[in-house]
Design a protein around this nucleic acid. Structure first.
Lengths: 117, 117
DNA sequence: GTGACTAGTTTACAAATGGTAACTACCTAA
DNA sequence: TTAGGTAGTTACCATTTGTAAACTAGTCAC
């Protein structure tokens, strides 16, 4: 074997996709945003009410990042006062099963930690 | 309805578990570490070789954090030179399906982004 | 007694991330 | 003309996270 090509999926390339996912989803408020949008389109102000601890700056920042990455849609209506609606894209919606899986894992995890103490 | 208790699962409490998961799994090298350990017990030096870009300090730091959170086991043998073996705990192993799910999502995601450009 | 081996620690620094608070734009209604 | 409503932006600071490089400990082989 001249090069280490015995496996098409080398360790490095195989973790690459997974890391992309975590890169996109990292950000203190990102999971929450996606979760809320999973339940339906929301306006900026609605998200603020649902997430009282996030500041305006952080909310727009993370919304912009999700938009850039194609996870959410932003629809702005040229009205006064302004109306902006956020929703999950198709690829964004396809994240929901993974989120449910992680959520279930976390429930089990927390339970197992309680039992120990 | 005196209080908003129509749903047992309120928005706030429901995202809580999900956020715990992301909290534990955030950290630049954490997904990779878990991924490698999913394939079997590894020594410190083996992990370093599998992840050439991580520094010693970061590797130990993130391993410690995962150990503290009960995701991995650390077995140290009092030999010279030292031998330390890391492996996933049961709850750690139970993360693998979620990781697979996220990984598959990311593959689809990357494909869909390629197609656009 | 010098160097190699493994699995770290330590110090100092740089970069990324997040938080606070004040400010903007635009139109409407009083 | 002044206040209110929505969806932001800006400037500045604090905290967290990550990096680089040198150092440690204990034993063995030379």
């Amino acid at each position: 074997m001249p090069e280490d090509r015995t496996n098409k999926i080398s360790c490095n390339s195989y973790t690459y996709e997974l890391e992309i996912a975590f890169e996109i989803l990292s950000g203190k408020w990102v999971p929450q945003i996606i979760w809320h949008l999973a339940k339906g389109e929301k306006r900026f102000g609605q998200l603020r009410k649902l997430m009282p601890k996030v500041t305006q700056k952080m909310l727009t920042q993370q919304l912009r990042s999700l938009e850039k990455n194609g996870i959410i849609n932003r629809k702005a209506y040229p009205e006064v006062p302004p109306v902006v609606e956020y929703s999950l894209t198709e690829i964004g919606k396809s994240l929901i099963p993974s989120f449910n899986s992680l959520n279930e894992w976390a429930v089990t995890y927390l339970k197992s930690r309680e039992d120990q103490s």
